[in-house]
């Protein structure tokens, strides 16, 4: 699944560790989501969307839209 997490994080000048701390996940989890190796669960996707004050579908794209 494609996502804009890396861009959104970079816009706020957060490191992966900083974003991980805000989401209560590890730096490796953030890296895995950004690189598409791990698709976040729905609860985590909601946490990400709320953190960036966006809709889930504005951050994540399954390619079928």
């Amino acid at each position: 699944m494609n996502n804009r997490l890396r861009v959104l994080r970079a816009e706020r000048q957060w490191s992966q560790a900083e974003l991980g701390a805000r989401l209560d996940v590890s730096r490796q989890a953030v890296n895995a989501i950004e690189t598409g190796k791990h698709d976040p669960s729905l609860p985590l996707a909601f946490r990400i969307a709320r953190l960036f004050d966006m809709k889930i579908e504005d951050i994540f794209d399954d390619g079928n839209a």
């Binding site: 490191s15 560790a17 900083e18 991980g20 701390a21 805000r22 989401l23 209560d24 996940v25 590890s26 730096r27």
Partner: peptide, 11 residues
């Protein structure tokens, strides 16, 4: 020194 969340610190 890396910032970590509560769960990560616990783990």
């Amino acid at each position: 020194a890396e910032p970590v969340g509560k769960s990560t610190r616990r783990a």
